[in-house]
Amino acid sequence: MSGEPESSMSHPQCWELLPWYEAGTLETAEQVAVEAHLRDCLICQRELQYLRRLGPVLRAADEPDVAMQTGLSETLARIDAAQRSRWKRGPWFGGWLRRFASIFRETPSAVRIAMAVQLGLVLVLGGLWLLPIDSAHRPAYETLSAPASQKDLARARLSVAFREGTMETAVRDLLLKHGARVVDGPSASGRYTVELPIPPAMAGPGSPIVARLRSDPRIIHAESLGTVSP
C-alpha cells in the first residue's frame, strides 16, 4: 500500500527523516512516528531498504583515520606566538576586550546598532568637549565704556595734522587702521589731538608710533604729546 497511512506523520515528513532513522539518530517520538508510517507505506519501506544498503556503501568510502602530522607542533608554535603578542599588549586588555566582544556578539543586532550609534555620539560629543579652545578666538567680555582688550594698554597722545584736501573717509580709515580716536581739535592750525593704544614696550619718547604715522602720506604732521596711563 502506498496511500496516506493512518499515522501522525505524513508521507513527505517520513520520507525526509528516513536517513536519520537509518542512522539511528532520531528522537524517540519521531522514531515511533516513522515506524508507524512505515507499517503502512510500501514506498517508504522500499526507500528504507535502499538507505540501509546506501549507508554502508557510503561509510565504506569514508576516509581512514589519519595519523597526526606536524600540525600539533605548528599550532602550539602559533599559540606561543599569539600569547607573546598578547602579553605585549597587556594581559588585562586582551581579557577585557574578549569579554566585551563576547557580550557584544550575543546581543541582538538591533540593540548592537543602537549601541554603536550611541557610542558614536558619545565619542563625537566627548571629542568636541575636549577640543582646546583657541583663546585668540574666544569672545572677550567687554564693557560698553572700555574694551577689555585695550583696557590694560597705555594710550599714546599725539598731535596730528592731515594733508589739506584729505577726505573724511580717508581720515576715518586712518584712525581705524591705527585704533586711534580723536580726543580734541581741530585747533586753529588744523591739528587734532588723537589717542591710540600702545603696548607698554612702545610707550615713551621715540615711540615708533610717531614714525609710523609720519610715514603715512595723508599726514603732514605728527608729534608725541606723551602717554596716558590706563
Partner: peptide, 10 residues
C-alpha cells in the same frame, strides 16, 4: 549524517 552519526538538529 552517514559518516559522523549526527541528528538533523545537530
Amino acid at each position: 549524517t552517514f559518516f559522523h552519526g549526527y541528528s538533523y538538529g545537530e
